[in-house]
Design a protein around this nucleic acid. Structure first.
Length: 281
DNA sequence: ATTCTTGTTGCATC
DNA sequence: AGATGCAACAAGAA
């Protein structure tokens, strides 16, 4: 099972492009017709970055943002199969085996290359082309960046914010609501399941029906899942411990690490959901 | 060979 | 109007 880029994976991939920080862009190569450039001006991207310096690597939820000198910004959403790396590290990247089916990215799917004068080439690769790459020459920051929702690990993401997020989707299953990027930026399928398992909440529960106690557990679980994922996966692409649901969900005959009881797999809101009926009442 | 999976959007429907 | 559900998109793995 291939893994899709969620909060921590996006963090990891975005940091691969830190290799270009401080250098100057000398050339940009891209395929203008590709879907991933559908919302931007591909021609402007092809010429607009040359001569600029990558100054900062940022992420917000599943969105990666690269700030260049002159207030230019490149926004990258990895979609399902987007990946960022440097050309020389294509085969050396740790964890390709866990990130996708076990092969290094195929150069045939390199859709954007940015040459820097320190010898580094930044590569965006996306086999299924569900990603989105937009260039904003500035001045001023892109609306998409300015209007992003509060990060789960920020102070702004508090109990009041969580209550609003839950009550505006009150009748939908909590599993489905957690996948809404406007409310829970960065949460994807495995993080949603991990969070509900940690909080001991049944994924079918309508979001609005969660008790105050369940909401408190949910807030803590959201924070712990995000913090753990960023630390273990986002910083070093490490191996999650067996104490997470993560390691058990893709094993055949998976067992809940908390109760030892069998895990259940079903589709909720069109998404495969793994949960522990013994723990998540 | 067919089915299934993923995240997001856009549309139809309640 | 706002909430909700689902098809569509692409490509690769099972």
């Amino acid at each position: 099972m291939a893994r899709m880029p969620e909060l921590a994976e996006v963090h990891w991939f975005a940091r691969r492009w830190s290799a270009g920080l401080g250098a100057t862009v000398t050339a940009v190569r891209l395929r203008e017709r590709e879907r991933v450039f559908r919302e931007g001006d591909a021609a402007a991207l092809a010429t607009g970055l040359v001569g600029r310096r990558p100054e900062r690597v940022l992420t917000a939820g599943k969105l990666a943002a690269f700030a260049f000198s002159g207030e230019a910004m490149l926004l990258v959403h990895l979609g399902m199969t987007g990946r960022l790396f440097t050309k020389d590290a294509r085969d050396a990247q740790p964890g390709w085996a866990r990130e996708t089916a076990s092969r290094p990215p195929d150069p045939a799917h390199d859709l954007l290359e940015i040459d820097c004068d320190n010898g580094v080439t930044l590569v965006y690769n996306d086999s299924r082309r569900f990603g989105l790459v937009t260039f904003h020459p500035g001045p001023g920051l892109p609306e998409r960046w300015l209007r992003r929702p509060p990060e789960i690990l920020s102070d702004a993401f508090d109990a009041a914010h969580l209550n609003r997020a839950l009550d505006s989707g009150a009748r939908r299953a909590i599993k489905t609501v957690l996948l809404d990027q406007d409310r829970f930026p960065g949460i994807g399928n495995w993080m949603a399941d991990e969070t509900l398992w940690r909080a001991a909440i049944n994924p079918h529960t309508p979001a609005g029906a969660l008790s105050p106690d369940a909401r408190a557990r949910l807030l803590l679980a959201l924070r712990s899942t995000c913090a753990d994922a960023l630390r273990v996966i986002g910083e070093a692409w490490g191996e999650p411990p067996d104490s997470w649901l993560f390691n058990h969900r893709w094993r055949s005959g998976g067992v809940c690490p908390a109760t030892g009881q069998p895990l259940r797999y079903e589709r909720i809101g069109g998404r495969t959901t793994c949960w522990s009926p013994a723990r998540q009442a």
